[in-house]
């Protein structure tokens, strides 16, 4: 057979084309399906709860993955901005994966637990009210829709999360009790954005917030909190910018960019505690204020050291002192 006759035999040609495309497919896609490196599991990474599963499906429905990635790359600045880089085990329960391809908004892989629920309730209702230069769309309709849980048990079963229908019902009831209770820490903001008729129900927004709060939390919990540089630094330090007016003004700039959305205009208070005061939950010394800003505190205060650096954290502390003086 002359080689040229391939160009005279369309069916043979089609089979030849399939053979040629199969080589790369086999090596880079098909064989890896069965390798341990593409399907690692870890007991540290738990499946989603029933509510988180529904929240994830709303995330998919609204196409959040078109603007937000969920994979932190092992690059120094990326780890500084978002947190530890993503591990393959973390996606083990993800069907589909949601790593995304574009960061019109920030990466969310380490977003869980960074802010309190109230932050998310308010942000989803009106992002521009918190960050005037943000181009994130508002999603007010999520709080106005009761969560459809008719398929939840079926979903969890298909996804192989390892708990049954009774457990799904139990989780849903427990979650409903938590978010509708008056003792729920974010109750006030939740009721502001949720219509009266739905305040006693699980809304789509509740599920979305639950999902967002799950992202990256297993890994954070698994990594022991290390006595970081923040504490060591603070233990011996006094603010080098104490009473420095220029530093206070600079600190005010950083405050507006990073702190205002939670602590309010001029530290008047919001989801975060009031800062224009001398009353301090975690202590009012320079060292303690530094530790709060640099290392974060439980209940939603993020750590800012890796992002701002020591110098700018001290300037923020100087500005907080300024607010303190003004409040007297």
């Amino acid at each position: 057979m002359r080689f040229d006759s391939l160009y005279e035999k369309p069916v043979l040609f089609a089979f030849a084309a399939v053979a040629v495309i199969s080589v790369g497919t086999l090596v880079t896609t098909f064989i890896p399906l069965f390798l341990p490196s593409t399907q690692p599991v870890s007991p540290l990474i738990t499946p989603y709860t029933a509510v988180e599963t529904e929240g994830r499906d709303i995330y998919i429905r609204e196409g959040c993955n078109n603007c937000h990635t969920q994979t932190v790359r092992p690059l120094r600045t990326e780890v500084a901005r978002y947190g530890d880089y993503s591990k393959p085990e973390e996606s083990a329960w993800d069907r589909p994966f949601l790593w995304g391809s574009r960061r019109t908004g920030p990466d969310l892989a380490r977003g869980g637990g960074k802010y309190p629920d109230a932050w998310h309730y308010r942000h989803m209702a009106n992002p521009q009210a918190m960050f005037d230069k943000s181009n994130m769309p508002a999603y007010p309709w999520l709080a106005k829709a009761k969560l459809d849980t008719s398929l939840t048990a079926r979903k969890v079963k298909i996804l192989g999360y390892g708990y049954d229908e009774a457990e799904v019902s139990r989780q849903l009831a427990a979650f409903r009790q938590t978010v509708t209770a008056s003792t729920y820490p974010s109750a006030q903001v939740r009721s502001q954005v949720t219509p009266a008729a739905l305040r006693g129900e699980i809304t789509e927004l509740d599920a979305m917030v639950a999902y967002l709060q799950k992202l990256g939390r297993d890994l954070k919990a698994a990594q022991k909190p290390v006595a970081g540089p923040a504490t060591a630094e603070a233990a011996e330090s006094k603010n080098p910018y104490a009473g420095n007016r220029g530093a206070e003004e600079e600190g005010e700039k950083f405050f507006k960019e990073n702190c205002r959305s939670c602590h309010g205009e001029k530290g008047a208070g919001g989801f975060g505690p009031k800062l224009a005061t001398t009353a301090r939950k975690y202590g009012g010394s320079d060292a303690e204020l530094f530790a709060s800003v640099a290392g974060g505190r439980p209940g939603g205060m993020p750590a800012f050291l890796s992002q701002l650096g020591k110098d700018r954290v001290w300037k923020v502390v100087a500005y907080i002192r300024h607010l303190e003086r003004e409040s007297r």
Binding site: P88, A92, R95, F97, K155
Partner: peptide, 27 residues
Amino acid sequence: IPVSLTKSYSAYAGVNDANVQWWFGHN
């Protein structure tokens, strides 16, 4: 795997789903 007429979950999970998806996406 279909859940309903309008909802399904990928046959692949996590890393494999990403790898298959972009093998598709690019081709």
